[in-house]
Design a protein around this nucleic acid. Structure first.
Length: 233
DNA sequence: AGCACA
């Protein structure tokens, strides 16, 4: 199917999302997954009856949105293939930047508001998500040495990767979504008593290397470029 | 299936 006759927009509209995922995790994962296509200005997701299972990701460039629509079409995200289109209208955060923003009328939106408020009482904290750039190049040395691993012990390639400097709210599902984009992915392992690190297993070290290069320095939140090394045997 | 942003 074509993108449904909707003209290109710097915001993409995603549906068929797994409705069991909590809103904040959903937004963080979408942010992490789509930031590979360009700078993201905002991610909007509501869990109201009408809007659950859908989200909007606002890019700073239309070209980034176009690439995301094409390349992430049907991407398995929390076990469901994403359905992606351009958004039908301009996002508020874009309108605010180009000066065309006008607060809209409030009709039956008051109930939605109330329902939202109740739900989000659980989630008090949220990652400041609008300032992330493309993943930085980071060879992992800094974070690695800070954690006590010295640079001179050269760790040989391994099919298992050792990830450090993750934000503590990272889940294994979030990492799976990122790493399963690369062939040979097998599984993510995290240890409850050791937040901030993870092991990601690939079928062999050729595939693990590709995944490492691709996601080295990738930021799940603006302050946590992930440091990826080969795990020690 | 479903196009919002408080």
């Amino acid at each position: 199917m074509l993108s449904g006759d909707i003209p290109p927009n710097q915001t993409i509209y995603i549906k068929n999302l797994n409705e069991k995922v909590k809103k904040e995790e959903l937004k963080r994962s979408l942010y992490a997954l789509f930031s590979q296509y360009g700078r993201i200005l905002d991610v909007v997701a509501l869990k109201t009856d009408k809007l659950r299972g859908q989200a909007w990701v606002v890019f700073s460039e239309v070209t980034a949105a176009s690439n995301a629509v094409r390349q992430m079409q049907s991407f398995p995200f929390y076990d469901k293939p994403m359905r992606i289109q351009y958004a039908k209208t301009k996002s508020d955060c874009v309108a605010k930047v180009d000066g065309t923003y006008a607060p809209r009328e409030k009709k039956k939106k008051q109930e939605e508001k109330a329902a939202e408020k109740r739900r989000k009482a659980e989630d008090a904290h949220q990652a400041a998500s609008a300032a992330n750039g493309p993943a930085v190049q980071n060879n992992g040395v800094h974070a690695a040495s800070r954690q006590g691993r010295t640079t001179q012990e050269a760790v040989p390639p391994n099919n298992i990767l050792f990830i450090q400097n993750l934000p503590h709210e990272t889940t294994s599902m979030m990492l799976q979504i990122l790493f399963q984009q690369y062939p040979g992915f097998r599984e993510v392992r995290m240890i409850d008593s050791k937040p901030g690190i993870a092991f990601v297993e690939f079928s062999d070290d050729v595939h693990s290397s590709v995944g490492m290069q691709a996601l080295q320095g990738f930021k799940i939140t603006p302050h946590n470029p992930m440091a990826i090394a080969y795990a020690k045997k």
